[in-house]
Design a protein around this nucleic acid. Structure first.
Length: 113
DNA sequence: CGTCTGACGTGGT
DNA sequence: TACCACGCCAGAC
């Protein structure tokens, strides 16, 4: 498996309850500043094979953008249960809930390439 | 091979 | 704030 893919999985698993990250932010931290769409792809292919808090990943506007209605409802419910408030499908105070991995984690857990 | 497609992001209006 | 056009890039076909 590619280093980038491993990094993405580790980063998502590292997001604490009650926090979120954006697709682009994860891609950047994992080593591909323009890899947001790859993060999307990885989520699609891996969400069933690993224990991933996929619901904590949203777009840069703070919106839930899942196509499937039931999936979107599930994601919103999970985030609300962790204390995050919404207006429609949009997270309020995205910057307040945005998780920023610390340098120590990045250095020890992620593969550089 | 070329083309199309996204659970995206940025910049312009 | 909202919408649009465009850049992006790996898979599917």
């Amino acid at each position: 498996m590619e280093a980038f893919t491993k990094n993405v999985i580790k980063i998502i698993q590292h997001i604490p309850s009650g926090y979120v990250m954006t697709y682009g932010q994860i891609a950047k931290v994992a080593g591909k500043p323009r890899g947001a769409r790859q993060v999307v792809r990885i989520l699609h292919s891996m969400s069933g094979k690993y224990e991933l808090p996929w619901h904590r990943v949203i777009n840069i506007k703070g919106e839930i953008v899942i196509q499937d209605d039931e999936g979107a409802y599930t994601q919103k419910a999970l985030l609300e249960s962790e204390g995050i408030c919404f207006r429609g499908n949009k997270v309020l105070n995205l910057e307040k809930y945005r998780y920023k991995p610390d340098a120590d984690f990045l250095e020890k857990e992620l593969q550089s390439f």
